[in-house]
Amino acid sequence: MTDTASQPTQRRRIPWDALAIAPFVIFAVMFLVLPTISLIGGAFTDRAGNFTFENIGGLFTPQILNAYWISIRVSGASAILGALIGLAITLAIIRGKLPAPLRSAVMTFSGVASNFAGVPLAFAFIASLGRIGLVTIILRDVFGLDLYRAGFSLFSFWGLTLTYLYFQIPLMMLTIAPAIDGLKKEWNEAAQMLGASQWQFWRYVGLPILWPSVLGTLSLLFANAFGAIATAWALTGSNLNIVTVLLYNQIRGDALQNPGLGAALALGMIVITSLANIIYLFVAQRAERWMK
């Protein structure tokens, strides 16, 4: 009875619902799904439009593999360092009982710094740690430490990693702070009452609880750095052979002289970020079995 009675209203509602989510669906299809499919298709199509594995095979040249490898290393290093340092700072501020006003100031700053990426960030690091940057000069003239003679270069792997940390650390802090807030004071007290030291509490309870959140953020940080280009471009121009710069040049001027190869390059990037996520989901599932 109730079923038949409610059906007419149900039927009248459907167009409303469909209409409301239509823009979202159209948008997702047009600007997310179709472009991705087009790239996947392009990666397996030759110039004449036939199916081929040649583009994928074309990725396995020293230049392209090297670009992927540098990108993975920069993203991995900046993600792992960013996660560890971000976790340490957030723990210091929230659990280290530093003054409360400090916390809100740091979190506001993190919001700014995590969005202070791209070109201006590169400018700031050039002005500080570039060849004639202020920090470089002060270290050389005042402390007698010549960074560039010691082998450091802002336009190298470590230079780029150091720069990326400027937005990776705050991003970690912003995403992990709620998880740290979720650690109940009583868990620590209960552990103490059972004889545990602070280290044992973190070893057996605190860090295992944070672990899934840390992992999730890690994969986010990795993807964040892996897809970044503006900072690297403004910092190093084409000097550093990372995969985004390679793809950027390909899109601008067909640098690889093969659009199919460009699509394969893009597909490779999607595969790598997806892989990072799959690894995360796999590990998180094991780490999260105690969650609802």
Binding site: K184, E186, W187, E189, A190, A191, Q192, M193, L194, G195, A196, S197, Y204, V205, P208, I209, W290, M291
Partner: peptide, 21 residues
């Protein structure tokens, strides 16, 4: 220190470690 006192305590909100069975 609390962990040297050999006392047991039960808290209002259970405070079981959620990651342990």
């Amino acid at each position: 220190k609390p962990n040297q006192r050999q006392l047991g305590m039960v808290f209002q909100a259970y405070a079981l470690f959620p990651n342990l069975n």
